[in-house]
Design a protein around this nucleic acid. Structure first.
Lengths: 161, 161
DNA sequence: GTACTTTTACTCGGATACCGTCTGTCCGAGTAATTATGG
DNA sequence: CCATAATTACTCGGACAGACGGTATCCGAGTAAAAGTAC
C-alpha cells in the first residue's frame, strides 16, 4: 500500500508550470527534464492531468502544457485523484457477510471505519493547494535556487501565436 | 494504492478468535474455512499476526491460535501494521531536491503534508479496537447468525492439555 | 502398568509460481507553426 | 508577393514489454498429544 510516484511527479510538474506567465506553455520534454524521471512516462502522467482538467495542453509546434485553473483552485487531493483514480483505499471483500451468513449488506464493520479514516486523510490533502505549496516554497527555499529554476522555465517556455 | 486483503482477513480472524474461551485455540484450517479464503495463504497471514504479538500459536496436535492480548488492547491499527508493515503511504523520491538543486534535505514540501494526512488516517485506526468492533457486532448483528458462528467456534475449538 | 516408539495433526518458515498493477517504451495519428515551393 | 504544399515539433492515446509486489501453493522441519508396543 504505497502511493504512486506519479502523484509526486504530478505535484512538482504543476508547481513548475505555476511559474509560467499567462498564455505561455512548457513542453513535456522540458518538464520531464526538470523532474528527472523517464520522459515518456511523465508525458503519460501529464495527459492524466489534462484529462482531469488540471492542465491545458496545446498540440502542434510551440505546443506544451500550462495550468487550466488558478493555483488556489488546484487542491493536492485533485492531483492525487487525477493520478490514482477515485477508488477508495479499502474495499471490502465481503468476509463479514459470508462469515455471519448475512443476506443484506446492512452494515460493514470495517468499511465504515476505513471510510472514516480515508475521509480524514483526504481532508488534509484537500486543505492544501498548489498556491499554498508554492507560497511555502517561496518562504522556505533559498532565493538563489528558486530563481535559477524560474530562469530555466522562462528560457524554455514558448508563447502561442 | 489499495489496502491488502490480508488486513481484512486478519481483523475478522481476530474477531473470530475473540469468541474463544480462555486457553482454547482454533486451528488455522478452521479459521480459513470460516473466513472463506485460501487456507495456505491465511495461515501465512496468521503467522504475521503471531510475529506481531497479536496472536499466540500452539504447535503440535490440538494446536492452533488464540489471542495474545485483551481485545481492548488490540487496535485495528496494530492489525494493519502487522500485515502491511510500517512503511508510510508516501515516500518521496527526491524530485524536490533535484529540481531545486538543494544540498540538505531541509524541507520536503510533500512529505510533511503526506505525513500529516497519514497521521490523521492512523488516528482513526488507532481509536478502534477489536473490543469496540466486537461490541458493535453484538449490537448490530442478528443474534441468530451470531450465535450460529459462536456455536461453530465452540464446536471446533480445542483445549490444550 | 510403565517406559518407549510410532503415528498423527498441528505450526513454522523458506522456496517458488502466478498474476495484477505500476512503470516504462514505442508507434501511428492528429495538430499547428514554420519553411519551402510554384506561379 | 501570395497561395499552396512540405516539413517540423509538438500532443494524443493505444499497444505492449518489464519490474515489482501481493496472492497462493508446496514442502521439509519442528512440535506435542495420542496411540501403539514391549517388557
Amino acid at each position: 500500500m504505497q502511493m504512486k510516484t506519479g502523484v509526486e511527479q504530478s505535484v512538482y510538474a504543476i508547481l513548475l508550470l505555476n511559474f509560467l506567465p499567462p498564455k505561455a506553455v512548457l513542453s513535456g520534454e522540458i518538464i520531464s527534464k526538470q523532474l528527472g524521471g523517464s520522459p515518456t512516462y511523465i508525458q503519460k502522467i501529464l495527459r492524466k492531468l489534462v484529462n482531469a482538467d488540471l492542465l491545458i495542453s496545446v498540440p502542434g509546434i510551440k505546443g506544451g502544457f500550462r495550468l487550466k485553473k488558478d493555483p488556489e483552485d488546484i487542491r493536492i487531493y485533485d492531483v492525487y485523484l487525477a493520478v490514482e483514480g477515485k477508488q477508495s483505499l479499502y474495499s471490502s471483500s465481503g468476509i463479514f457477510y459470508d462469515m455471519l451468513n448475512l443476506k443484506e449488506k446492512d452494515i460493514c464493520l470495517l468499511s465504515d471505519l476505513m471510510e472514516e479514516a480515508e475521509s480524514s486523510w483526504q481532508s488534509i490533502l484537500k486543505r492544501e493547494t498548489i498556491a499554498s505549496l508554492s507560497k511555502e516554497i517561496n518562504n522556505n527555499c533559498p532565493k538563489e535556487n528558486l530563481q535559477m529554476l524560474k530562469n530555466i522555465v522562462n528560457e524554455k517556455m514558448v508563447y502561442k501565436g
